[in-house]
């Protein structure tokens, strides 16, 4: 479903991604972990071309983007439709209700009728447990509810891949569970997803593969069991002991 070859990204002279290769099967959930500044967000954003990679290729389903040359706008738009991003800070549209947020993509981008879009949006909001909140504005929702609307909005376009960038790290601890549950359901339904998160329990329970990223490279990869219980690389061990320590404080 996803095929990434030698992906590079620099901001000016700062090289943030130093050649990433990755292959994700349809229906797999991949969790990316790594220290702050290692390039996790940049990596996800490159898959949605929110950042334009400096070199390399990304193929999602049968859409291939080769970043060795500038891409035409149209191809970028087309490529973006293959995946959808869920942001750390939700980025809901504040001037639209929950329902309107979810309807926006189908109506404006896919040009499907308002009624059909509304029906679909209602279903999606019901799926993330927010049917009663559909007419509320984002400011009237809790962080966890906002993030679930964010997930419904991303799903509304029926992307082939869902990208999550620390979807729970801005949430109060008691709201993390409800968002992870929605993500877990998605994974069980067979959605292909790439998730940047430090929620170990989620990674252990849901991920097919865990990647440890450091300084713009994938340093180690394996099953959750391999990575969490038996990490081979020293940097992985250091990082894991750090976050485990933080967990027990």
């Amino acid at each position: 479903m996803i095929e990434i070859n030698n992906l590079h990204k620099s901001f000016g002279s700062l090289e943030v991604l130093k050649g990433i290769d990755l292959h994700v099967e349809k229906g797999q959930a991949v969790v990316v972990i790594g220290p702050s500044g290692s390039g996790k967000t940049t990596f996800l954003r490159c898959l949605n071309i929110l950042e334009t990679p400096t070199a390399g290729t990304v193929t999602i389903d049968d859409h291939k983007a080769d970043f060795s040359k500038p891409l035409p706008k149209k191809q970028i738009t087309e490529f973006r439709k293959q995946s959808a991003m869920v942001f750390q800070h939700y980025n809901l549209f504040p001037h639209m209700t929950a329902l309107e947020n979810v309807m926006e993509g189908p109506v404006t981008v896919q040009k499907i009728s308002k009624e059909a879009a509304r029906k679909k949006a209602e279903e999606l909001l019901a799926k993330v447990g927010l049917k009663e909140k559909m007419n509320e504005y984002p400011f009237q929702l809790s962080g966890g509810q906002q993030q679930r609307v964010g997930i419904a909005r991303a799903l509304a376009l029926e992307p082939k891949v869902m990208l999550f960038d620390e979807p729970t790290s801005a949430l109060d601890p008691e709201l993390v569970g409800e968002v992870l549950q929605v993500m877990k359901d998605l994974a069980l339904e067979g959605m292909t997803m790439v998730v940047v998160t430090h929620e170990m329990r989620f990674a252990k329970g849901v991920a097919d593969e865990v990647l440890f990223m450091d300084e713009g490279r994938i340093v180690e990869r394996g099953t959750p069991k391999d990575i969490f219980e038996n990490p081979k690389e020293e940097r992985t061990q250091q990082f894991l002991s750090l976050i485990q320590k933080a967990d027990t404080i």
Binding site: L50, K81, M85, F87, N91, G105, A156
Partner: peptide, 13 residues
């Protein structure tokens, strides 16, 4: 900026 990005990610021009 996140508003532009959210719009982009749902495929808006």
């Amino acid at each position: 900026k996140g508003q532009w990005e959210a719009a982009n990610t749902i495929g808006m021009s």
